[in-house]
């Protein structure tokens, strides 16, 4: 008689354990952050990404959503999926993203869809970076539009076919100050919702 509850408990435990691992790793859903978390005005990162110090949850989540990520000495990655009002980013809306100089040798902002891939459009407007900010005249005060169609003027990142999306900020060769004290060092880019559904 003891065998029946043992068997039922074991089968349920194996299934639930495997599913919970897939969930934590982001194989189902977006994954769960358990440690090493850095949050600068809603831009989230994890200083253990890519390193042997990463816990098994972080390592699995990065393998799914950021394979071949570099350690923080070479690059750090921040992601944000909401605007300044806390609303999820969606291709149905138009946004203005603006920021200041970044504490790194080179930086870029790239739009990814809900599956962590570049959206399937042919607009050739997938990212904005230091090169473009410099070309536009001021790397310390830059802005661009995120929308489904190109704006009348200014820099543009296309959200066409992205659905719900996020923006990833890459900072290559980050300054030691940023690693030491991210909240005091990084002036986080702002994501302001301008309009939705053509309104």
């Amino acid at each position: 008689m003891k065998l029946v509850p043992l068997l039922i408990g074991s089968v349920l435990g194996l299934g639930a354990g495997a599913v919970s691992a897939l969930f934590m790793a982001g194989m189902i859903g977006s994954g769960v952050r358990l440690s090493g978390a850095v949050d600068v005005d809603g831009w989230q990162s994890d200083w253990t990404i890519g390193s042997v110090a990463a816990n098994p949850w972080t390592r699995a989540r990065v393998a799914r959503h950021g394979l071949l990520a570099l350690t923080r000495k070479e690059a750090v990655y921040f992601t944000k999926a909401t605007d300044e009002g806390g609303r999820s980013l969606t291709e149905a809306c138009t946004y203005r993203v603006s920021g200041a100089g970044m504490p790194a040798l080179w930086w870029s902002l790239t739009l990814y869809d809900g599956t962590s891939y570049l959206p399937r459009n042919t607009d050739n407007a997938l990212s904005y970076d230091l090169t473009k900010a410099t070309a536009e005249g001021d790397a310390d005060a830059w802005s661009f539009t995120v929308s489904q169609t190109a704006p009348a003027e200014g820099a543009w990142v296309s959200s066409k076919a992205a659905g719900a999306f996020d923006l990833t900020l890459r900072l290559y060769k980050p300054s030691p100050d940023l690693i030491e004290n991210p909240n005091a060092t990084l002036i986080a880019p702002r994501i302001e919702r301008i309009s939705c559904g053509g309104q």
Binding site: P5, L6, S10, G13, L14, G17, A21, M27, W57
Partner: peptide, 18 residues
């Protein structure tokens, strides 16, 4: 039985994924 097998399955799958 649930707790023990849950923990085993969770960490086996988690460590194998990367």
């Amino acid at each position: 039985a649930f707790v023990v097998t849950f923990a085993i399955a969770h960490f086996v799958v988690l460590n194998a994924l990367p």
